[in-house]
Amino acid sequence: MKKFFLLAISLFFLTGCNSYTELNQLGIVSLVGIDYQEENYHVYIYLVEPQEETTALTSYNAEGSSIEEAMHQLYLKSNKKMYLAHMDALVLSKEAIDEKLKEIVTYLLNQREIRNNFELMEVDSLNKLFEEKKGAQELIELVHTNENYMGTTQSITFEKFLENLLIDTNTTIPLLSFNKELKVEGLSLIHNFQTIDTLSTEETILLNLLENNLKESIYQEITIYESKTNLEFQKENNLFHIYLEVNQNPSSFSKELEKELRRLLIYYEEQDYDLIKLKQRRKENRLESNATQIKRNFTFDIHIAVRENNLERKK
């Protein structure tokens, strides 16, 4: 009897009815956009709403002096409980990054529901993007396709973004524009929670090449079939060994490419922006032991070996 009594009492506490939410009362957020204009946050969201046979995307937007206030305003407009655990992507405007990135990151870190594997992007006109109902999957696929088949951008998850910012305050974020249609524009370079520059799609290909992330691409009308880059750390120097397989003019392409790579590396070294995270990578390879050494500028050398693709040669 005593056991039954204890069990019966426990059951009242174990049902979980207290926090029960019907599925159709749950607004699953797939995409969030944050803009900052005239000292106000503009927050846009896409809710995935299950219909009878399909799912529909409904967009909402609101503004407020803080993200919390803007989110509160969104609640007033939506009849669903917003659920951020399935968020796939976060798009930010340049203004939001430049002025409020630290606050946005803090807000996201404090959200228990959010996971750190959603993707980040910068889009120039958020309102147009949400008016045109471009879903998170569409944006993610655009970035991934460009990254994998052209090397014109680099995708980044929130976790990687955070890690990069914490390591050396430098990170990149895919840059998209939406004038008439949605388009990849390269990368936005962020330093110390602010955008400092942008890389065009061609410059992003060079960056991917240096980081050994380039699978295939077309650079200055030359098709790159294969590429491989090894970075050799020497005591006072960084040596890039680049192997490429292209469709035509290997020797002239090699010279042109080396010139462009040098230009890119020298430019950002002069700007004191560690574009390919050399300092961190040297530290990981135990080449630097203290801060003074890390601050020192390094020289670099590039060795490029280009060969024509066999099929092209047969032609």
Partner: peptide, 9 residues
């Protein structure tokens, strides 16, 4: 899986 920077965060 997290790296030292996120572990410390």
């Amino acid at each position: 899986s997290l790296g030292i920077y996120l572990t410390n965060l």
